[in-house]
């Protein structure tokens, strides 16, 4: 075989492998979306039906009107949005302040605090289910979205600080010093100089926290009894546990839950990697 032909063959093999990886990755998601639009006789069948023919909007309509456990899916989407957005906004303030402290100042306990941040990230969130559940109950926060908000702030904060400090440290110190020389106060400097430069990092960190909170299942399952207060993952968990599972509706709801996450993923795809890995290796 000529070298050129060999090269072409090698290239074709690589592209073939690429297509196989693509199909393996996308097929389950494609299948979920497909089922959301398939009539029931094309869902509950042993035949392989590659796409809905004809597609139906029945399931989508059903999750909005009849809903899950007597509540329209709007309710769960709203609950999830309230919890995730509040937790992210509150968490962002705490994270920005703490990240500024560890990235901009050298002070006693700085090292201890950073090591603490690292260690608490190793503690599995599921291990704290019992004490946090009891604490929420004592404070009257069980069965409240507020309880979930507070807990999610706690669960996401260590990683947010850890990731955000690299963004703060990346802003040249000289900019702030110049601002001080011009007579600006500490607060003005923070707000007018540091904040705009850290904002992209803050957005990336917040999107991370948003995805974590949006997907959070264990605490939503444990803390919330009132079905009207379920978040999307909890509602889906309830839905799938029912005796006769309505797969078309579940897949429709699951697809809806995934849309915001997918959009955010595409937005921060590059930072996902540098954030998780670089944030963890290099400070």
């Amino acid at each position: 075989m000529s070298p050129l032909a060999r090269k072409r063959l090698g290239k074709a093999a690589l592209n073939g492998a690429g297509i196989i990886v693509f199909l393996f990755a996308i097929f389950p998601v494609y299948w979920m979306i497909g089922i959301a639009f398939k009539p029931n006789d094309q869902i509950f069948t042993t035949d392989f039906i590659p796409f809905p023919s004809p597609p139906t909007l029945d399931h989508v309509e059903r999750v909005f009107t009849k809903g899950i456990a007597g509540h329209s899916i709007w309710q769960f989407l709203l609950n999830s949005t309230i919890v995730a957005v509040s937790a992210v906004l509150i968490g962002a303030v705490f994270a920005l302040l703490a990240a500024t402290a560890v990235a901009r100042f050298r002070f006693r306990f700085r090292t201890s605090f950073l090591i603490l941040l690292l260690i608490v990230q190793m503690v599995p969130a599921e291990a704290l289910l019992i004490p946090l559940f009891l604490m929420a109950r004592r404070l009257g926060l069980a069965d409240q979205l507020l309880g979930l908000i507070v807990i999610n702030v706690g669960l996401t904060l260590p990683f947010s600080v850890w990731m955000l400090r690299t963004f703060v440290a990346a802003v040249p110190k000289e900019l702030e010093e110049a601002s001080w020389i011009d007579g600006a106060s500490r607060f003005t400097t923070f707000w007018r100089v540091l904040f705009p430069l850290v904002a992209p990092g803050l957005v990336a960190t917040s999107i991370f926290a948003f995805i974590t909170t949006w997907n959070e299942f264990a605490y939503a399952l444990t803390l919330i009894n009132d079905q009207g207060k379920y978040t999307m993952p909890a509602a889906l968990g309830f839905f799938i546990g029912q005796r006769s599972t309505d797969w078309g509706a579940i897949m429709a709801a699951s697809t809806l839950m995934m849309i915001p996450v997918l959009i955010f993923f595409l937005l921060v795809q590059r930072r996902m990697v540098s954030g998780l890995v670089a944030g963890a290796v290099k400070g």
């Binding site: 999307m232 993952p233 699951s254 995934m258």
Partner: peptide
């Protein structure tokens, strides 16, 4: 990305 973005519940 599609596989990665899928929430654990889904």
């Amino acid at each position: 990305m599609a596989a990665w973005a899928t929430p654990p519940t889904s």
